[in-house]
């Protein structure tokens, strides 16, 4: 099987030849090309070259074409702060007072040089790999984007205290998210990672999610012309797994803070789980610990398909050594072959 066949098989809840592996090494492409993170993301051809080298080196089953989360804020007129050893951060809020929402206008993808750079990257990668490897695009959910648009504290206050303005902001963000996700699919992305950390029960209670984030996700995902996988960026999901499945999404990135076997039982036949290797601890793993962690994850969630081995955040930290990433790949290839008869 090639990577595309492997991923599609597991996502239809069947067992492929082996457990697919998604290593979200977006930043590490810069290291491969000996560039700073800022330089690396400044040109489409750099990212294409970096991702192609990483695909060969780590033998993963997808190409991640998300540049960095703050790129969406950049499209809205915000600033991005680059540092040498970590993901780019969003600069100051573009919504400084709730009243700014009343005059807010979303950018168009076709007018945004940074988003067009992502689309160019997807197109070139698609030309290189065709239908053999899934290309995963990313769109930040309309419900989670305001964390960057207005700051987390002010956004939580808006959610609780100004439902009408929240609804207005969601309408604007939903249109943008749909346009952005569909542009990536048109460019050649196989699926969209719907990044929605605010919907996690780590951030808001389930009752509030059902009234807010879930409604937004249902409306938005219905208008995206392809498959989505929801990612809560390390946030917990167990109490809302059925609710997330009801949004129409096909996959779910799950947290290392929850038991993978319990998650698998809850998601079986409804969602493909993506996770949940601990990206923070990974930095100081030994090769043996990496192998053990991979074995443990496969043993808990591999059977029956519906599982993609990955980290739990959707982004491997810059500080994780190459040796450990390669140990994860080796362990997946050694212990992930179906049927998983070695599991008692």
């Amino acid at each position: 099987m090639n990577s595309m066949q492997r991923v599609l098989t597991t996502m239809s809840f069947n067992e492929p030849d082996r457990v697919p592996l998604f290593l979200f090494t977006g930043l590490q492409g810069a290291r491969e090309l000996d560039l700073s993170i800022e330089e690396y993301f400044s040109r489409s051809d750099y990212v294409v070259e970096g991702q192609m080298r990483l695909l060969k080196k780590y033998r993963g089953d997808c190409i991640s074409c998300s540049f960095y989360a703050a790129i969406e804020l950049e499209a809205w007129g915000g600033d991005v702060i680059f540092q040498p050893d970590c993901p780019p951060n969003a600069g100051p809020a573009i919504i400084r007072r709730p009243e700014d929402i009343d005059r807010l206008q979303a950018p168009h993808v076709s007018d945004s040089p940074v988003l067009l750079r992502v689309l160019e990257t997807i197109q070139t990668l698609k030309a290189r790999v065709g239908d053999t490897v899934p290309i995963v695009g990313t769109a930040i959910s309309p419900f989670s984007l305001p964390v960057m648009q207005m700051g987390f504290d002010h956004y939580l206050e808006l959610i609780y205290e100004q439902p009408d303005r929240l609804a207005k902001l969601m309408r604007i963000n939903e249109d943008f998210c749909v346009e952005w996700a569909n542009a990536q699919l048109t460019a050649g992305a196989t699926a969209i990672g719907y990044a929605d950390p605010v919907s996690s029960v780590t951030v808001i209670p389930r009752e509030l999610y059902l009234k807010t984030g879930q409604q937004v996700a249902k409306r938005t995902i219905a208008r995206i012309n392809g498959s989505t996988a929801t990612h809560l960026a390390s946030g917990r999901s167990l109490p809302i797994i059925d609710d997330i499945a009801a949004t129409g999404t096909a996959g779910l990135g799950v947290s290392a803070l929850e038991d993978l076997a319990t998650l698998k039982t809850a998601a079986r036949g409804k969602l493909t789980l993506i996770g949940n290797l601990n990206g923070v601890e990974m930095r100081r793993w030994t090769v043996q610990q990496a192998e053990q962690a991979v074995k443990c994850a496969i043993a808990k969630a591999g059977r029956g398909g519906g599982f993609i081995l990955s980290d739990n955040h959707g982004e491997i930290p810059w500080q994780v050594p190459d040796e450990i990433l390669l140990a994860i790949v080796d362990a997946c290839e050694r212990w992930g072959n179906y049927p998983l008869d070695w599991i008692e």
Binding site: V201, I204, P205
Partner: peptide, 14 residues
């Protein structure tokens, strides 16, 4: 213990 969410912590503290 994972029983309540960050938003509740923030709003109650404020």
């Amino acid at each position: 213990e994972g029983h309540i969410a960050l938003s509740q912590i923030y709003m109650s503290g404020k």
